[in-house]
Computed example of a mutant assay.
Amino acid sequence: METEYHRLLGTPVSGGVLVVSDHASNRVPDDIDLGIEDALLDEHIAIDIGVAAIAERMVEAGTAAWLGNVSRLVCDFNRTHDVPGMMPEISDGYLIPGNVLTKEERQARVDRLFDPYHHALAAQLRETPPALILSLHSFTPGLATCTKPRPWQVGVLYNQDERAARIAIPWLEAQGFVTGDQEPYSGKLLNASMNRHAEPNGLPYLSIEIRQDLIAEEAGQAEWADVMTRLCAAVVGQLPSSQPSLG
């Protein structure tokens, strides 16, 4: 299933795993001009590099995936209405002229993309509540505006609900991965989609950030799809089996 704002891969089932990737696409609708060079659409400011391919491989292994279908520069689904970063005018030092919008133009994108994406995701979660949501992202080894390198291979983020994270962190460390607990970002700050869909409904979730240089190519994508599939199985196996009610 595909709409302007999302792609649904596989068949979600109650008690299964649903991969949610807000930044899986670099697509820009034909009637939106961001005013940037096309090459920037292949960079981290426009897309979470590698995550769509990982999600697609995980679907082949039996999960389902809900993928954002426009670039995060067009509309960042992992934000709230009140932050400029939903349609950034500047990202990692790059000006985005097409995002200098009037209040009405900004609201038009919210109405067209942001709200339908989240309304549909909420409906999907009500219809088939998963045992675990895997909120899948990637991060750059270093920002253009910051010279400090990011040494972690994978980061686990969370806000109030730490259930899945506290299982995942030692599991990843036991596999030999350099794992960031609330690194390179804090889930207390950058967790908008899970704050909206998982936390208030008692749905266990993992917010995972994988370093993009590890998953930019096919071999790395295959490796990390396997890691994520095994991680989700391990987490689900250790979580309480009761399912929340999303009335």
Results as ranks from 00 to 15, higher is better:
Leu40Asp: 03
Leu40Thr: 06
Leu40Glu: 06
Leu40Arg: 07
Leu41Ile: 12
Asp42His: 13
His44Arg: 05
His44Val: 04
Ile45Thr: 03
Ile45Phe: 00
Ala46Asn: 10
Ala46Gln: 03
Ala46Phe: 10
Ile47Gln: 02
Ile47Lys: 01
Ile47Leu: 15
Asp48Phe: 05
Asp48Ser: 07
Asp48Tyr: 04
Asp48Gln: 06
Asp48Cys: 06
Ile49Leu: 10
Ile49Gln: 01
Ile49His: 00
Ile49Glu: 01
Ile49Arg: 00
Gly50Pro: 08
Gly50Cys: 13
Gly50Val: 15
Gly50His: 09
Val51Ala: 04
Val51Asn: 00
Ala52Pro: 02
Ala52Phe: 08
Ala52Cys: 13
Ala52Trp: 05
Ala53Ser: 11
Ala53Gly: 13
Ile54Leu: 13
Ile54Lys: 00
Ile54Trp: 00
Ala55Tyr: 01
Ala55His: 02
Arg57Cys: 07
Arg57Tyr: 01
Arg57Trp: 01
Arg57Gly: 07
Met58Phe: 07
Val59Thr: 14
Val59Phe: 11
Val59Gly: 08
Val59Ser: 11
Glu60Pro: 05
Glu60Asn: 07
Ala61Ile: 04
Ala61Gly: 05
Gly62Ala: 05
Gly62Arg: 02
Thr63Ala: 08
Ala64Lys: 01
Ala65Phe: 09
Trp66His: 09
Trp66Lys: 01
Trp66Gln: 04
Leu67Cys: 12
Leu67Thr: 10
Leu67His: 06
Gly68Leu: 09
Gly68Met: 07
Gly68Gln: 04
Asn69Ala: 15
Val70Phe: 12
Val70Asp: 07
Val70Ile: 14
Val70Gly: 05
Ser71Asp: 13
Ser71Tyr: 12
Ser71His: 10
Ser71Pro: 14
Ser71Gly: 15
Arg72Pro: 05
Arg72Val: 08
Leu73Glu: 06
Leu73His: 07
Val74Glu: 01
Cys75Phe: 08
Cys75Val: 15
Cys75Lys: 09
Cys75Met: 15
Cys75Pro: 10
Asp76Ala: 02
Asp76Thr: 06
Asp76Gly: 00
Asp76Ile: 03
Phe77Arg: 05
Asn78Thr: 09
Asn78Gly: 07
Arg79Trp: 04
Arg79Cys: 10
Arg79Gln: 10
Arg79Gly: 03
Arg79Ser: 11
Thr80Glu: 10
Thr80Phe: 11
Thr80Cys: 10
His81Cys: 05
His81Glu: 14
His81Ala: 14
His81Trp: 09
Asp82Ser: 13
Pro84Leu: 07
Pro84Phe: 03
Pro84Gln: 06
Pro84Cys: 05
Gly85Gln: 12
Gly85Asp: 14
Met87Phe: 05
Met87Gln: 01
Met87Ser: 00
Met87Cys: 05
Met87Asn: 01
Met87Tyr: 00
Pro88His: 01
Pro88Ile: 09
Pro88Leu: 06
Ile90Asn: 06
Ile90Met: 09
Ser91Ile: 10
Ser91Val: 11
Asp92Gly: 04
Asp92Asn: 06
Asp92Met: 02
Gly93Arg: 01
Gly93Asn: 03
